[in-house]
């Protein structure tokens, strides 16, 4: 699935239940992070649940992103971040404005400010990898 497909689906879903069910589905599709990488050094601060992030750039300077959380709904949101940023060229990372793309999907309005802040700090961390 691509990010535009995921966002379109979110927009078409009729109610909070189906939108959250979709986010939970995305969470289950996100590849898990190896246990030995879930260490304090890889924790993203500012989240209400634990979020880990590791990354590398390949020979073509494309981003390889690993994200995980102990909470399923956060994991689903991280899957959207993964769709937006993984495999993108380093030079383009800062230009990807995921929050504004998500704003149209009605999902953000259902997130508590704490969740939005946690989500924002992950997005800020990934954008800053450029």
């Amino acid at each position: 699935m691509t990010l535009p497909e995921a966002l379109e689906t979110l927009q078409l879903l009729p109610d909070w239940e189906s939108r959250y069910a979709f986010i939970i589905e995305l969470a289950k599709q996100l590849p898990p992070m190896p246990q030995d990488e879930k260490v304090p050094a890889n924790i993203v601060r500012g989240c209400t649940s634990q979020v880990w992030l590791t990354h590398s750039f390949d020979a073509n300077t494309h981003l390889h992103l690993n994200l995980d959380s102990d909470a399923l709904i956060v994991r689903g949101l991280l899957a959207l971040v993964h769709l937006a940023y993984n495999n993108q060229p380093r030079a383009q990372l800062a230009a990807i404005n995921l929050p504004s793309q998500l704003a149209q999907s009605k999902l953000l309005e259902h997130l508590s400010p704490n969740r939005r802040n946690g989500f924002a700090s992950v997005v800020a961390t990934v954008s800053a990898l450029s």
Binding site: Y20, T48, L72, V74, S112
Partner: peptide, 13 residues
């Protein structure tokens, strides 16, 4: 089997 933050989010809805 569920994270308390996930439950709290779905209760909020």
């Amino acid at each position: 089997g569920c994270h308390p933050a996930d439950i709290a989010t779905l209760l909020d809805q």
